[in-house]
Simulated scan of single mutants.
Amino acid sequence: MSHTAHIRSHRKPRRNASKIAMRAGVAGGVLGTLAVAGASGSASAAEPVTQTLELPTLTADMAVQVAQSAEVTQQAAANYQLQAERDAAAAKAAKEAKADLADAKKKAEARKKAAEAARKAAAERASRAAERTTLSASASASTPAAGSGASASVSTGSSAATGSAAAVISFVKAQVGKAYVSGATGPSAYDCSGLVLTAFKQVGISLPRVSQDQSTAGTQVSLSNLQPGDILYWGGAGSAYHVGVYVGDGMFVGAQNPSTGVVERPLSYDPPSGAVRVL
C-alpha cells in the first residue's frame, strides 16, 4: 500500500461508464441538432440566392427579345417607306414619260403637216409655172404684130374705177413690192389668194380662202369685157391655180411667186384664163 493512499485529495475518482455514455449521447444529440439546424438554415438561406440569380437571367432574355422585336419592326417600317418612295418615283417617271411622248407626237404631227403644206405649195408653184408657160406660148402665137394693139380677146379699156372697185384697186396697188409667202394674208406678205381675200375684205366682201374657190365666187365675165376690180384667174374655173385683180388699163396686180412677190404687170405678161365679177 502506498504511503499516500490514505490521503483523499490525491485519489482519482472513478468515472461511471453510464454517465459517460449519457454525456456522449447528449453531446452527440446536441451536435446533430446543430448540424441539422445548420443544414436547414443553410438550405433556407440558399433558396433566395438561387431565385435571385435566375431573375436577372430571365429579365435579360426578355429585354433582348423586346429589342430584337423593335429592331425588326423598325426595319420593316423602313422597307415599307423605301418601297413607297420607289413606287412614287416610278409613277412620276411614268407620268413624265407619257407627257414627253404626247409632246413628241404633237411635234411630229406639226412637222408632218408643215412638210405636207410645203410639198403642196411646191407642187402648186410647179403646176402654175407649167401652166403659165403653156398659156404664154398660146398668147404669143395669137398676139398681133407689134404696134397693132393688144390681143382682141383681152380688153385693155381704161374705164375709171369708182366706189368699192376703186378701194380694192387702191389697196392692191399699195401692196406692190411686198413678199410672197405661201399661206400669208398680210400685212407684210401674201400669197395670190391671200392678197385677193384681204383686198375684198376692205370693202366688206368675204371671199373663199383658196384660188380654186375664188375662181367661181362671182359671175363669170369675158376677158373682152373686163372692168377694174374683176378677179382674174389662171387655170380652169373651180380648179384655178392662181388669181389676181384687174386694175384697168390692161394691168393686173397679183402676188406672183417668192421671187417677184406682189407685182403690177400687163395682161400680156401672163394672160389669164378667165375672170369673175363680185362688185
Rank of each mutant, 00 (worst) to 15 (best):
V276D: 08
Q202E: 14
K107S: 10
A70W: 04
Q68A: 15
L135W: 04
Q51D: 11
V168G: 04
A63R: 13
E109T: 06
T59N: 10
L232I: 07
E131M: 14
A110L: 11
N225I: 00
Y190A: 04
A5F: 15
D100R: 14
G236I: 00
A160G: 03
E116Y: 09
Q202L: 07
A88T: 08
P187D: 12
Q212S: 12
A123D: 15
G254I: 00
V221F: 05
N225E: 08
T52H: 10
K107E: 11
A166N: 06
E116L: 10
R11Q: 15
S259R: 11
L267D: 03
G235L: 05
T219D: 05
I169M: 08
K98T: 12
N257T: 11
A160P: 05
K112R: 15
A77S: 09
R8Q: 12
A94S: 13
S151A: 11
A129V: 15
S142D: 12
L232E: 01
V263N: 15
R128G: 13
Y269T: 05
Q83W: 06
R8N: 11
K19C: 03
A84N: 09
D191I: 01
R277W: 04
V30N: 02
G183W: 05
A146Y: 10
H10R: 10
V66A: 14
R277E: 07
Q227Y: 01
P144T: 08
C192V: 06
S151G: 13
V263G: 13
A94P: 01
G149F: 04
G38T: 13
A104S: 14
G186C: 07
Q68E: 15
G250R: 02
Y180V: 00
N16I: 11
P187C: 05
L82E: 06
Q75K: 07
R11E: 11
A152R: 13
S136T: 12
A104W: 04
N257H: 10
A91S: 12
Q81R: 09
V276G: 08
S138Y: 08
T59P: 01
D249Y: 02
A115W: 09
S188V: 08
G229P: 00
W234R: 03
C192E: 04
G38M: 10
S170L: 01
R14E: 14
A184S: 10
V262S: 11
Y241G: 07
T219Y: 00
P272S: 05
K178I: 01
V66W: 04
T33M: 14
Q75T: 15
V66G: 07
E47V: 10
Q256R: 10
L267F: 07
S268K: 05
Q81I: 14
L226C: 06
S155D: 09
E131S: 14
A97Y: 01
G218Y: 00
K106W: 04
A152V: 09
G248V: 03
Q214V: 06
T50D: 12
A189L: 06
T134G: 00
P56E: 11
W234P: 03
Q65A: 15
D213P: 02
A137M: 05
G254W: 00
A102W: 01
P266L: 03
L135S: 10
L197P: 00
L232Q: 02
V154M: 10
T59V: 14
T133C: 00
P48H: 09
V72D: 08
I231Q: 00
V181H: 14
A137G: 05
L207S: 05
A84R: 03
A93I: 09
V221Q: 05
K178G: 03
A237M: 02
D103A: 15
A45I: 10
P258R: 04
R125V: 09
P187V: 06
S153K: 12
V26M: 13
